[in-house]
Amino acid sequence: MSIAGRSRILRQLFGCLVLFTAHEALAEALVDPDVTAVVEGGYWREDGIGEGSYRIIVVNQGFEHVSSRVVAEWKLGSNEKERAQIVHSLELVKGGFYSVGAPEIEFSRDGARVELEGTATFSSGTTVVCHFALAPGGKVAVLKACGD
């Protein structure tokens, strides 16, 4: 292989390496490192706004007594002209009180049912279970509060 051919291959490999490194750096900048779980799915439709999916995000905070903050989002689907966007966002669990794992979600035509399981932050032997119902329009019903 000629020197010019080798030089071209090295430039291509270097370009791929730069793109890979830039992609990894962008991914790190987009995702909060404290996010421990994201579950998305289901379907909602709201007059005047559109349609999309539900998304539940669990964010851990603290280091000695780790607690979770859980947020429900109503995500409007993307199309050729616009990116996806969040049209409603509500906090299901405030940080500081409970440490929960990945949410379990059941989807239906009427919305979504979210179940969270974990422990009380300052009483590690105390198990907690929480249930929420999500509906179009950013509506949340607490079926079973975490402390009950």
Score class of each variant (00 low, 15 high):
Ile3Gly: 07
Ile3Thr: 10
Arg6Pro: 10
Arg8Cys: 04
Ile9Pro: 01
Leu10Glu: 09
Gln12Phe: 09
Leu13Ile: 10
Leu13Arg: 13
Phe14Asn: 07
Phe14Arg: 14
Phe14Cys: 09
Cys16Phe: 13
Cys16His: 14
Cys16Glu: 10
Val18Asn: 06
Val18His: 06
Leu19Tyr: 04
Thr21Ser: 14
Thr21Phe: 12
Thr21Trp: 14
Ala22Glu: 07
Ala22Asn: 03
Glu24Arg: 14
Glu24Phe: 08
Glu24Trp: 10
Ala25Glu: 08
Leu26Asn: 07
Glu28Gln: 15
Leu30Thr: 08
Leu30Val: 02
Val31Cys: 01
Asp32Leu: 04
Pro33His: 12
Asp34Met: 04
Asp34Ala: 09
Val35Tyr: 02
Thr36Glu: 09
Thr36Asp: 05
Val38Asp: 01
Val38Leu: 08
Val39Met: 02
Val39Ile: 00
Val39Asn: 02
Glu40Val: 01
Gly41Arg: 03
Gly42Asn: 06
Tyr43Gln: 09
Tyr43Arg: 14
Tyr43Met: 02
Trp44Asn: 00
Arg45Ser: 08
Glu46Val: 01
Asp47Phe: 05
Asp47Val: 06
Gly50Ile: 05
Gly52Ala: 09
Gly52Leu: 11
Tyr54Ile: 00
Arg55Val: 00
Arg55Gly: 01
Ile56Lys: 00
Ile56Asp: 00
Ile57Pro: 01
Val59Glu: 14
Asn60Trp: 10
Gly62Leu: 05
Gly62Met: 11
Phe63Thr: 12
Phe63Arg: 14
Glu64Asn: 15
Glu64Gln: 15
Ser67Trp: 07
Ser68Glu: 05
Ser68Trp: 13
Val70Arg: 12
Val71His: 03
Glu73Pro: 01
Glu73Asp: 08
Trp74His: 04
Lys75Gln: 06
Leu76Phe: 06
Leu76Ile: 05
Asn79Glu: 08
Asn79Ser: 06
Asn79Trp: 09
Glu80Phe: 15
Glu80Met: 13
Glu82Met: 09
Arg83Cys: 05
Ala84Cys: 02
Gln85Tyr: 06
Ile86Ala: 01
Val87Leu: 08
His88Thr: 00
His88Val: 00
His88Gln: 04
Leu90Ala: 06
Glu91Phe: 05
Glu91His: 07
Val93Phe: 04
Gly95Leu: 10
Gly95Gln: 14
Gly95Val: 06
Gly96Asn: 12
Phe97Thr: 02
Phe97Ser: 03
Phe97Arg: 08
Tyr98Gln: 07
Ser99Asp: 06
Ser99Ile: 02
Val100Asn: 01
Gly101Asn: 13
Ala102Gln: 13
Pro103Met: 10
Pro103Cys: 05
Glu104Ala: 15
Ile105Pro: 07
Glu106Gly: 05
Ser108Glu: 15
Asp110Ala: 15
